[in-house]
């Protein structure tokens, strides 16, 4: 006997699985990448969790709220927002070769 309820579900709703990199390694979209100068970074300098503007404004959520903040360059699209929003001017865009 067929399970008609299951069949309907298959036709009406494709159940999608959450994955990282649904669109692939989006880090390849740009060769310019944000690099943090740790000597200028506020939480690194103070040793206290603070600032994190880069974490706040990154649309991709690829920056950690840690000391020091870390950027996942495999998925960073290189928009440059974090550079603009860092109050300490600690981030700059540099050419980073990814294989």
């Amino acid at each position: 006997m067929t399970d008609s309820k299951k069949d309907y579900q298959k036709i009406l709703a494709s159940v999608q699985k959450p994955v990282i990199g649904e669109a692939g390694k989006t880090g390849t979209w740009s060769i310019l990448k944000p690099i943090i100068n740790l000597e200028k970074c506020i939480p690194v300098k103070s040793g206290k969790p603070s600032c994190y503007n880069c974490w706040l404004y990154c649309p991709e959520a690829v920056i950690t709220r840690t000391i020091p903040p870390q950027i996942d360059l495999d998925y960073c699209k290189g928009c440059g927002i974090c550079v603009e929003e860092c109050p300490a001017k600690a981030i700059s865009m540099e050419v980073v070769k990814t294989e």
Binding site: P18, V19, I20, G21, E22, A23, G24, K25, T26, W29, S30, Y52, Y57, C58, P59, E60, A61, V62, R65, D72, D74, Y75, K77, G78, C79, G80, I81
Partner: peptide, 24 residues
Amino acid sequence: MDIVEEEFINPGTRMCAGCAMQLI
């Protein structure tokens, strides 16, 4: 900052670089 740590969007989406909608 008392903002929830967990992210509900995985990195590597199809949105343009610098898309405010994804941040929203």
